[in-house]
Design a protein around this nucleic acid. Structure first.
Lengths: 205, 205
DNA sequence: GCCCGATTTGAACGCTGATCATTTCCACCG
DNA sequence: CGGTGGAAATGATCAGCGTTCAAATCGGGC
């Protein structure tokens, strides 16, 4: 048992990681448009066919790359959230961090949202866990600002708030935002968080 | 002059419109993934090469299809906004209309945002006009709710609000929204508009 | 030393966007 | 009525894509 009849010194799992690393770099460098299975295979020193022994198809490979990016972003946001002490500033820092991560890793970030998974694959376990983790992360940092909210209200508020920040991020990245003289997105993300939180507190009084 | 040496009875401009109609239907039916120049050509009864006499390439054709969709959506939103009299309900109706349009014309709508234009093409005249029109439309309906805001503040508020609604829409369409028991997006879009407007008024007092 | 079977290959298939020499056809002229 | 010039449309061609799978390749066990 063990390594039987193996020509290469890399195990299956090592090959998977090599492929993911190569794919991630390729996406980061050329975007989804410049991505191809052949390039990935060549970068990792194997041939195309071998990739299909590691991943069932291109979509699966890209889905795992997306997952990696989501992980990296989540960790980055946790770091960003650690600094500010005041709850509101912490939320604003998270929002700004979300956007700056997206701007820094533009192609990677866009892959997460432009790589379309057919609806029947929407209940991918790892992917959903990631999403709920992000929602709960926002929820956790929103909670101190809405002490009287019920769990359901809090959940709805976090969903709405994160959607809002995400929308600003999308438009900023894709250039579809009418900047109207604004230098960067930070004032707008601050405004969104501030107004939203203040509006929710108002609502409950 | 006029129709010289023309084999077909369709003028260049007519052909453009036929191509756009065919492309639009194809996108609506199969999405960006199922789109191809050959299919468009076949649907309109011409060959591939001819398409490149009408549009410089696939991106240009798709950009014009996007423009069409944006036009249709804008007109739809104007209709939606005509009904409610109260300013807040009108804004909420616009937000809900935006989302319901995206859900009804899911593939068309997604084309507008997934069809990536390289940054050097971000100053396309028609496209930018469309975008500012939409922003100004929101601004116009937000203004009565923020009577004391300066033009700059109003512009920023409209940008932030529309971004927020857009974000909710994106997540709803792509299935990346943690619904957490919610049936549809309407309550969330209402919440976003309500909280945001209330928060902005609070801020200014 | 040999061979079995796991491992890896790469040619093949049908598709794509894009190009452009070639063909087709009409309007005009004699 | 018979050319004929030139606009209009074609489709073969190219490079590249995702995906498949029969065939080639190699290493451990006997």
């Amino acid at each position: 048992m063990g390594a039987m009849g193996r020509r290469n010194q890399h195990s299956r799992e090592e090959q998977r990681q090599m492929a993911l690393a190569a794919a991630d770099e390729l996406v980061a460098a050329e975007g989804l448009a410049g991505f191809s299975m052949r390039k990935v295979a060549q970068t990792m020193g194997y041939t195309v066919g071998n990739l299909y022994l590691l991943f069932s198809n291109q979509d699966d490979l890209l889905a795992e790359v997306s997952l990696r990016t989501a992980d990296a972003m989540y960790e980055y946001l946790r770091g960003v959230a650690a600094r500010p002490k005041a709850p509101l500033e912490r939320l604003q820092a998270i929002a700004a961090g979300y956007i700056s991560f997206a701007q820094k890793h533009s192609f990677r970030w866009r892959l997460m949202f432009e790589h379309y998974l057919p609806p029947e694959k929407w209940d991918h376990p790892g992917l959903n866990a990631q999403q709920t983790a992000l929602f709960e992360f926002v929820e956790e940092h929103l909670a101190p600002l809405l002490p009287e909210a019920s769990p359901k209200q809090l959940r709805a508020a976090a969903t709405a708030l994160w959607s809002s920040v995400h929308g600003l991020c999308v438009l900023a990245i894709t250039g579809k935002l009418n900047w109207s003289g604004l230098k960067d997105a930070r004032p707008l993300s601050d405004l969104i968080v501030r107004a939203f939180v203040s509006g929710l507190r108002e609502e409950r009084s």
